[in-house]
């Protein structure tokens, strides 16, 4: 599944990034690297963009970026 598929509050571990995504490098530089955990915190009022937490800071990305980030769901965090 991709980061976009998480529900608010869910955390995943990054498996891989889409190698062809145009923002691949910047996403990696912002901390989206394999093995990192990333939590989807909330979606904006119109469903997009989404706010995620990676490396203890908050980042806002669009679905198109989130779909390039493949994750394994690990846990449910109730307190979003």
């Amino acid at each position: 599944m991709t980061l976009d598929g998480l529900r608010p509050g869910q955390t995943g571990i990054i498996k891989r990034l889409d190698p062809n995504h145009p923002s691949l490098i910047r996403l990696a530089e912002m901390g989206m690297i394999n093995g990192q955990s990333v939590t989807l915190i909330r979606r904006a009022p119109l469903g997009e963009p989404i706010k995620v937490r990676v490396m203890n800071y908050d980042l806002c990305i669009r679905k198109s970026e989130a779909r390039a980030i493949h994750v394994d769901l690990i846990e449910e965090v109730v307190n979003a």
């Binding site: 145009p22 910047r26 912002m30 706010k51 669009r62 970026e65």
Partner: peptide, 8 residues
């Protein structure tokens, strides 16, 4: 792309 840090 839209990649924006949200500061505390």
């Amino acid at each position: 792309p839209f990649i924006l840090e949200l500061p505390a």
